[in-house]
Design a protein around this nucleic acid. Structure first.
Length: 241
DNA sequence: GGGTTATGCCTCCTTACATCA
DNA sequence: TGTGATGTAAGGAGGCATAAC
């Protein structure tokens, strides 16, 4: 399985740390030259992080953070937002940078689940906590599933619609054939066995009622046979081989 | 070997913040 | 500028698998 292979490769590369990243960068260049990941975001100097963090000091107070407070405050290269600590009980809100999202998306497109090695590797590359990488993947899977559900929903809606149309068309056709049969004008009419129709009926009650109507149906079949016989006698085509 | 407990990961649902129209 | 809609990071509950005891 591809996933296992990847997991295996990741494990093999774990000890190489940045080396693995470098080789993957090489791979990425080949696979998708448009994606250009600058490591600078991941290696954002602590001083810069701190100074930018100061600017955010008054933004909001934050709820108690995980044990790992190493990345208390950092900020993205676009200076928009980012990892905030939580000292005053307000939930922190992280917005990932474009680069971070890109790399996560890339990783996700290769494999939608994480193993510990990949998680750690990504967390290091992105300067995020492993927990954040994990959560991102969880949310990403949820989004994918939601999208897929929407697509499926659309598909079944259309399918239902087309089956409805088909049903109406067949009913109409049946009506026409029945009326032709009543007039005795159509030797091509083939009586559909009652049992076949019954098996399609979702209502038990109706099935029972229909059984009681079998005699009437038999009478109709008899009539049909009379029509067929007379057509045969006339050398006509009876619709069967 | 079977029961219990701890751990880790997952999905699902929800909350709350950030952003945009 | 205020507001509702939307996107999404994160929290928490509960289920499942696995390992250790």
């Amino acid at each position: 399985m591809g996933g296992d292979e990847e997991a295996c490769n990741t494990k093999l590369a774990l000890g190489l740390g940045v080396g693995e990243y470098a080789s993957r960068q090489e791979m990425r260049k080949k696979e998708n030259p448009l994606v250009c990941l600058d490591l600078s975001f991941a290696l954002c100097p602590k001083q810069e992080v701190a100074s930018l963090g100061d600017r955010m000091e008054n933004r909001s107070s934050l709820r108690a953070m995980d044990e790992d407070e190493e990345s208390e405050r950092s900020i993205d290269t676009n200076n928009k937002s980012i990892i905030m600590n939580n000292k005053n009980g307000v939930r922190k809100k992280l917005r990932l940078t474009k680069e971070q999202s890109t790399l996560l998306e890339e990783s996700f497109s290769r494999h939608s689940t994480l193993n510990p090695a990949r998680k750690q590797s990504l967390a290091e590359q992105l300067n995020l906590k492993q927990r954040q990488v994990e959560v991102w993947f969880q949310n990403r899977r949820a989004r994918t599933k939601l999208k897929q559900t929407e697509v499926d929903c659309e598909f079944w809606k259309k399918r239902c619609e087309s089956l409805g149309n088909e049903n109406r068309r067949l009913k109409k056709e049946l009506q026409e054939l029945k009326s032709l049969n009543k007039n005795g004008a159509s030797p091509l009419y083939i009586q559909i066995p009652k049992a076949t129709m019954l098996s399609m009926c979702p209502s038990c009650e109706r099935m029972v009622k229909a059984h009681h109507q079998d005699q009437a149906a038999a009478k109709n079949t008899e009539d049909l046979n009379v029509v067929r016989k007379s057509n045969k006698l006339q050398g006509g085509f009876d619709g069967t081989n």
